[in-house]
Computed example of a mutant assay.
Amino acid sequence: MGSACRCIICHDYGDRDRLGTFELRTIVHVQQYGWSTVLTGPRDGRPGWAFTIGLWHTHRSPELVVFGLDPYDMQTIVNNLGERAAQGATPAPGQERHDATERHPVALRPVDTRWYERLVPEAVRFYRSSPLPFLQVVWPDAAGLYPWQPGADPALASAQPSLWTPPAEHPPGVWTS
C-alpha cells in the first residue's frame, strides 16, 4: 500500500458540497481529535461493534474494529489504542495488547478486505479506496482464551466474527448471513 492518503480530507473528489452529516462530522472529528469512532448497534441478530475512521489519515496507523462488548467498552478500547498509536505505539497484526482496557488483554488480527463493505462501509466511503489497513481487536473468554485457541468458549464466535478469515471461508453464523 502506498503512503498517499486518498481520504475525503486529503483529496477533493468534487463532491464536498454534497457530503452528508455523517461525513462532515467525521471530518471534524478527524481534524480535531485525529480519528472518529463509529458505534454500530446490534442488528440482524448480530451484536454491536465499534470502529475508527481517521487513524490511517492522521497517524498512518491501521484502523481498528471491535465487536460484541458493551458500546462504552468498545469505544474505550479503540480510543485507548488510538491514543497509543498517536503516541507512537502503532497497533500491528499479531500483537497482544494490555493497554486497551484494564479488564483483559486483546489480540490484534488483520481484517480481510472482503469484509469492509459489509461491516465498515463508512470507512471505505471516507477513504474512497481499498484496501486500507484494518485490524480487528479480539477479546478473550473468561479463561483468557481467544476464539482460535483450543478450548475457547464457543460463544466468542457469536459475539465477534473472525474477520481475518475470508467471508466465504468463515464458519456459518450471524456474521455470514
Rank of each mutant, 00 (worst) to 15 (best):
R118D: 06
R46K: 13
P171G: 09
A123N: 00
P47F: 01
S129A: 07
A168I: 07
E96R: 15
Q95N: 00
V28C: 06
Y72K: 13
Q160N: 08
T113H: 11
L132K: 08
S129R: 13
V106F: 07
W175F: 08
T113Q: 14
S177P: 06
R97V: 09
N79Y: 00
A85L: 08
T176L: 02
R46W: 05
R18C: 05
F67G: 02
I53S: 11
V124M: 12
F126P: 02
A92G: 04
F67I: 00
R97Y: 01
G82C: 03
T113V: 11
R128G: 07
T176M: 01
E96L: 11
T40R: 15
L19M: 14
P121F: 08
P42G: 15
L108N: 00
T37Q: 05
N80S: 14
R84F: 03
A152R: 09
M74T: 04
A143W: 01
P167Q: 04
P93G: 04
P166M: 00
L108R: 09
Q136M: 03
A100C: 10
L145K: 14
P140H: 13
H29L: 10
A86Q: 11
R97S: 00
A157E: 10
A100P: 02
P91K: 00
E117R: 15
R97F: 09
P140Q: 08
L145E: 05
P166H: 13
V120M: 13
Q136I: 01
I77R: 08
A123T: 02
A50N: 09
D70S: 10
G54W: 00
I27D: 05
E102H: 10
P167T: 03
V120N: 06
Y13N: 08
G20K: 07
H170A: 11
A100F: 05
G68P: 07
R60D: 11
S129D: 15
P133E: 07
D70R: 10
T176Y: 03
V138G: 06
H104S: 11
T101A: 08
N80H: 14
T101P: 13
P131V: 07
G88C: 07
E83I: 10
P166Q: 15
G14R: 12
D17N: 14
P42M: 04
S129L: 08
T21S: 09
G45W: 01
Q75I: 02
T52H: 10
V30L: 08
